[in-house]
Design a protein around this nucleic acid. Structure first.
Length: 326
DNA sequence: AACACCCTCAACCGCAACGCC
DNA sequence: CGGCGTTGCGGTTGAGGGTGT
């Protein structure tokens, strides 16, 4: 776009002339921006930059505000709940980062994009397959996601156990395949890493009514079991969308993930048993014979170098530690 | 201790869409 | 209707910190 190039060129000149700053923001600049937005509101970023006395482009100001200074941003690691949601939403929408970010309150598209590139794509690379390949999708769906579910449940069970000392019976965590996915207890889904009012608890993962709210959540209409199959062919199903989890009915994938988790955990336990005292990475190819893998669609490509443990030990070893402790 | 390599993430870039005049 | 400014999105880069040798 010529026009854009002209603008960029002028900006470049301003940078060269020392009229515009680039690179990391200083505390002073942050203060200027925060104070200005607080008193004048967002928008009109170019004029805002000038009015606030910032020697930055409007674009830079907007980005700094949205990705870093906004008061409603969440900080810290991406939680297992968020990871699960990212995997699911990306499977449906592809690299529609801003769209995905809309369903992760307090997270920015940039953050999610970075997460995907640094964590998810890394594992695809380990598997020596394309991140969009069916094999990798299957690994995500049948291994990664169930493990996340297990991990969430384990964390919730720990929280419930602690709460059980206050509320009798709360530690009696129901089996995964029944109550977790059906959301019998709101408290079950609360992550210790999340604020009490975080939407992840009941809103996203279930309600006392027993629905799969992750997929029926009004905030994610495209995932609703009542709309997923009948939604109009909007841009959501266009070029950016990736159809490998094609129009499953509502919570189907989630149920599958939960069911698959048992098998996945069993395999994991077998892996641990097989490892005995050896403190070496768990290698899929060495532990799971190809005869066990066809259902996962990972039998016919090279997986020998893939470190399974690294999947769920991406940010910490909570899940693994808990499994070891069982 | 020094160096190289790797990883993360804030920031930038190019482009397209939108809205106003 | 076209020009122009603004906004938003997705891809990419590079600084800085961490880790391995």
């Amino acid at each position: 776009m010529d026009m854009a190039h002209e603008r960029d060129a002028s900006s470049e000149e301003e940078v060269m002339a020392g009229e515009l700053r680039r690179g990391p923001w200083t505390v002073e600049e942050d203060l200027l921006l925060v104070n200005y937005v607080a008193s004048h509101g967002e928008g009109r970023w170019n004029s805002l930059a000038r009015s606030a006395g910032l020697k930055r482009t409007g674009k830079s100001c907007r980005l700094r505000w949205l990705n870093y200074l906004r008061p409603d941003l969440r900080r810290g690691n991406i939680t297992p709940q968020e990871q699960l949601l990212i995997l699911e939403l990306h499977s449906r929408w592809g690299n529609r980062w801003s769209k995905i970010a809309q369903h992760l309150p307090g997270r920015t598209d940039n953050e999610i994009k970075n997460y995907w590139r640094t964590r998810v794509q890394k594992h695809a690379k380990q598997l020596k397959c394309d991140v969009n390949s069916q094999q990798f999708k299957d690994v995500m769906r049948y291994l990664w996601m169930p493990r996340l579910v297990e991990r969430i449940q384990a964390a919730a069970a720990g929280a419930a156990g602690a709460a059980g000392q206050v509320q009798a019976g709360a530690a009696d965590t129901p089996p995964l395949s029944s109550s977790w996915q059906h959301g019998a207890d709101d408290g079950l889904y609360a992550s210790p890493e999340l604020p009490a009012d975080a939407c992840w608890s009941a809103e996203y993962y279930g309600t006392a009514a027993g629905d799969h709210q992750l997929l029926n959540n009004p905030a994610v209409p495209e995932l609703s079991s009542t709309t997923a199959g009948s939604s109009s062919p909007s841009s959501d199903s266009g070029a950016g969308a990736q159809p490998w989890l094609a129009p499953v009915g509502g919570a189907e994938w989630f149920t599958t993930a939960c069911d698959a988790s048992s098998a996945a955990v069993a395999m994991h336990d077998a892996v641990l048993a097989g490892q005995q005292q050896q403190q070496q990475p768990c290698l899929l190819g060495e532990t799971w014979t190809s005869s066990e893998l066809p259902e996962l669609g990972v039998a016919d490509f090279e997986i020998g170098s893939f470190d399974v443990e690294s999947i769920w030990s991406m940010d910490d070893n909570l899940w693994y530690t808990q499994r070891q402790g069982v």
